[in-house]
């Protein structure tokens, strides 16, 4: 799918993009944040649901937020948080709130997804001299690891999986960010990566 050089460059670009996202998350949480170096690998879409089942730890409810991006860089991000992480996140963000409702919880997850996904993809697009527009994110809550109704994702034939662990000074929040693309986008991506490789060497 990608040559070793293209993959190495993409890894570095994602590291840079995640650096921006880390700074944004630290500001949001008002705490020192570290994001582990994201691991990147590629999957055919047929293996995607199975992969999702392996990345989440156990049978906790899962918050799955999706955000479509369009333009010369196009695809969709999926951000997954497990219930424990959501609880930690909400406890940290709503310190002044007397009563936390499900609406508060959903809103917090969506806003964190928005900041993390938009900052990461936006920075990637900027570095790669591409352009993208963001749609409003949506949220679904799964009682267990059954993602059967993600069939609408079949329009994507490639999945770039970028996974990271977010840690804060006192709270631990584990989030998985996944980027889905179509093969047409992969060709654009390869072209942009080759251009960057040409500029570097």
């Amino acid at each position: 799918m990608l040559t070793p050089l293209q993959k190495e460059i993409l890894q570095e670009l994602v590291n840079i993009a995640f650096g921006s996202a880390t700074a944004s998350m630290a500001e949001l949480m008002d705490a020192f944040a570290t994001l582990s170096v994201p691991s990147i690998h590629f999957l055919p879409i047929e293996q995607f649901n199975e992969h999702l089942r392996t990345v989440v730890c156990d049978d906790q409810p899962l918050y799955l937020s999706q955000q479509v991006f369009t333009g010369s860089m196009k695809g969709e991000t999926i951000f997954i948080l497990e219930q424990t992480s959501v609880d930690n996140l909400v406890r940290h963000l709503y310190t002044d709130e007397e009563q936390i409702t499900q609406a508060h919880i959903n809103d917090a997850v969506l806003e964190v997804n928005n900041i993390l996904s938009v900052t990461t993809i936006g920075k990637l697009a900027e570095i790669m001299k591409m352009q993208t527009n963001f749609m409003v994110p949506t949220l679904r809550i799964f009682a267990d690891r059954e993602f059967a109704d993600l069939s609408e994702l079949a329009e994507y034939d490639a999945v770039i999986i970028i996974e990271t662990l977010m840690r804060f000074e006192q709270e631990q929040i584990c989030g998985h960010l996944l980027i889905l693309t179509a093969s047409a986008m992969m060709q654009e991506l390869q072209h942009a990566l080759d251009q960057i490789a040409g500029e570097m060497m």
Partner: peptide, 27 residues
Amino acid sequence: VSADIQPKSQERVMGAGAKTVIPKPIS
């Protein structure tokens, strides 16, 4: 106030008359 930090997005809103762009989150 947006997480969209792309220069083209910033150019577009500045061209449309925004005073400035602040990256999310606000502080």
